[in-house]
């Protein structure tokens, strides 16, 4: 069984979003996505200052035998990336909910309303 944290929002493409405040969110991939990929060996992330767009690719996660594009659930500016993942991509497997990928400043906080609640996400799994 995959873990779904209650206080997060989710996308259909298995990214999670954590609201830090009205303007800023963290984005990561769900436990389900991490388990599907298997041992993650590389995380390809944008640079701070890049912009991301809802429903567009912003990077990729790679395991030995698979690669999956990361689809941004929101639109905004990348203000920080999780540098730890560069050297230790396996952190995503160890705890996908603390191994966030990027921190984004939202252009349009209303977009969050479009995302799935934990219960809805569990439903689609």
């Amino acid at each position: 069984m995959s873990k779904v944290l209650k206080d997060l929002l989710y996308s259909k493409s298995h990214e999670w979003v954590k609201k830090l405040n009205e303007e800023e969110v963290l984005i990561g991939i769900s436990d389900y996505a991490a388990k599907q990929l298997g041992s993650i060996v590389f995380v390809d992330l944008p640079e701070a200052g890049d912009t991301v767009e809802a429903e567009s690719e912003f990077g990729a996660v790679e395991s030995v035998k698979a690669a999956s594009d990361l689809i941004s659930p929101v639109t905004g500016e990348v203000i920080e990336i999780n540098e730890e993942l560069v050297g230790e991509p396996e952190l995503v497997n160890e705890d996908p909910y603390s191994a966030w990928l990027i921190k984004v400043k939202l252009d349009n906080p209303e977009e969050l309303e479009e995302l799935l609640s934990a219960d809805d996400y569990e439903e689609i799994l």
């Binding site: 060996v41 790679e62 035998k65």
Partner: peptide
Amino acid sequence: TRTDEVFAAK
């Protein structure tokens, strides 16, 4: 025997 492919990729 079988190889450690995760090690190779990382």
